[in-house]
Design a protein around this nucleic acid. Sequence first.
DNA 1: TTTAATTTTTAGGCAAGACTAATTATATGT
DNA 2: ACATATAATTAGTCTTGCCTAAAAATTAAA
Lengths: 218, 218
Amino acid sequence: MFSQSEENYIKSIYTLSLQSGKSVSTNLIADKMNTKASSVTDMIRKLSDKELVNYKKYQGVSLTKAGQKIALYIIRKHRLWEVFLVDKLDFSWDEVHDVAEQLEHIQSEQLIDRLDEMLGFPSFDPHGDPIPNKEGKFKERKKILLSELPVKSEGVCVGVKDSSSQFLKFLDKNKIALGDKVVVVDKEKFDDSMHLEIEGRTVHISQKIASNLYLKLS
Amino acid sequence: MFSQSEENYIKSIYTLSLQSGKSVSTNLIADKMNTKASSVTDMIRKLSDKELVNYKKYQGVSLTKAGQKIALYIIRKHRLWEVFLVDKLDFSWDEVHDVAEQLEHIQSEQLIDRLDEMLGFPSFDPHGDPIPNKEGKFKERKKILLSELPVKSEGVCVGVKDSSSQFLKFLDKNKIALGDKVVVVDKEKFDDSMHLEIEGRTVHISQKIASNLYLKLS
DNA sequence: TTTAATTTTTAGGCAAGACTAATTATATGT
DNA sequence: ACATATAATTAGTCTTGCCTAAAAATTAAA
């Protein structure tokens, strides 16, 4: 139906749109995709011809309804494969991205439906990101960055903002996992680092860590 | 490492070599791959530069040791995915080929190792074809075409020669599956059709069917 | 063995997707 | 408002993988 390259552009435009809210610039896409602005312009014109993006020269792009539908389906596939790799093949959450990036392009609706079923129709992937259902709908969980929490408050770890291998490995090393209960014991005024109690243990983390961990209030 | 197209050529050359025994002609490859002889020549020169095939102009091609290793790894991946689809996702054996054709190109040794483990290190795929292990070794089962069996002999169904959807669906419809015990009750001199007893049931099949079913003697 | 038929290779081209360099719009600062 | 900086687009090229048509090599037939 669509080439891998087209799918990758659509996915990138989707995630960049989410972050910025409005239409996305050529350079931003080029940066994200490690390619050049001119290549982006080429592809955008192609996607525009197929009516997957709204595009006026020099005005940035946004996905059409059709484009969004495709984006959500690719994301669905990516995240389901991540769950599969972690739950069924014992990958750790920092190892799944590159493989899922390949698997997300496999074309077989039956495969994805069955996989979904086998995994018990999961709503979130191993990083806490929501998985669109067959209709493209998903429930965004009400979550807040740990760094935003005041002293004495508590919550449960439900996701990561940065899902780079470095960050995930750091969390593993410090035994911080999704589902863990977190209490904010104290905050340092000087560097905004935080003293926490995680599943009973005392932990001290930097502001940078705190601003990449999502909690749900409990 | 190698493009999908390169991998597909390598796989085709491998299977055609098995059948013919000797080096494979350009036209044969073109036929199998639904492409043109000139395209085959192009690709063969490319593979020859990478020392994956032995090639002298007008003399056909054969795989080098390196090429064989790659072929076996692709076949390993293809057949493991077929087992996965049938055993874990309840695909029927006539539905798996196209999806496995895509999945076989996913690059992740870890993925394949874990998949292999999850499936219990299977030795044969759903059609009875052997699965190479991590080192590329596999045991070819001693098997014989049902059509070669004399009256009164018996065996167990272990594989199919033709694995087209039509043939597999025919077998399903007639409740003939791998593992079934088969007794040759009688043979018609006129059309070489056979009267069988399969798992207790009486079945009458044409010569064409019999010459596409592999049995192991029991 | 010499010709005819077949197979294979070469030559030249096309589309997708990328790139560099040059050009044109838009945005910014004074 | 105007010059300049930045961003986006166009023009032209490259590689991969495919194609058609023509030429060359091999094989088969008389």
